[in-house]
Amino acid sequence: MEKQLIGRGVLAGAAAGLAAFVFARVFAEPVIGKAIAYESARDVVQARLDRAAGLTVPAAGPDLFSRTVQADVGAGVGLILFGAAMGALVAVAYAICLGRTGAIRPRPLALLVALFGFIGIYAVPFAKYPANPPGIGHADTIGPRGALYLVMVASSCLLLFLAVYVGQRLATRYSTWTASVLTGLAYLGAIAVVMALLPALGDLHNNVVEYGRHATETPLPLRDARGTIVFPGFPADVLAQFRFYSITAQVIVWGVIALAFAPLAERVVAPQDSAARQDRRPLVRT
């Protein structure tokens, strides 16, 4: 049974990744293009300012893949693999939850597992360290930034697991509703503490040394030696659009996993439920 569940999870996930890729290719790639155009134009001005200040300008690294390959192949393979991996995780979590999380039926349980995946793996980490388009992010902080993001993902998933575990214990004393609300609030409180303890990206040592105190790494306007702005800061609309599309893509990934995996899993776990639904259909129509 678990083999079937995993296979169906991977399948639903790959389909979800493909759907997110189609969305990303149509809507997000133009925004990524704008962000890269900003970054390139900024680099040119920055190099001019550096030369004027007598600094040596480092040469840019070679492009290993063309933009077309990155946008059409790399993003596609990446999103499909990501979807398949998340589908596999949903299937594993689902198999463990079956019958261990109260009297919930197989189909709604699949929806909840996918919802919790979205919250734990993406939405909560995003609240602390939101997605950024190319052009935002300093190369010399990628180490701590990557580590902090993973700490955020791990904490939110671990706390979510604990919330479910504690909620199951509480549900024996209180109603399911009360237990859910209590553990939900406890989760929010715990993750808020984690977020408050982790540093803002602008507070990272290299950033403070090089750029002064700012909340984020979003590029500020460039100024010449006299302090006149010679190049604008990162366009706010491009950033807002990119983040909106990033959230939308993840909603597509987890939403399609939920909607595709739930009926597929039900057919494995509770074929009688699935059959009952099939039998009912003509009755309703006539």
Binding site: V69, A75, P134
Partner: peptide, 11 residues
């Protein structure tokens, strides 16, 4: 570099 766009996009 290959996964670059997806990496940004996935957060």
């Amino acid at each position: 570099e290959f996964f670059h766009d997806g990496r940004h996009f996935l957060g």
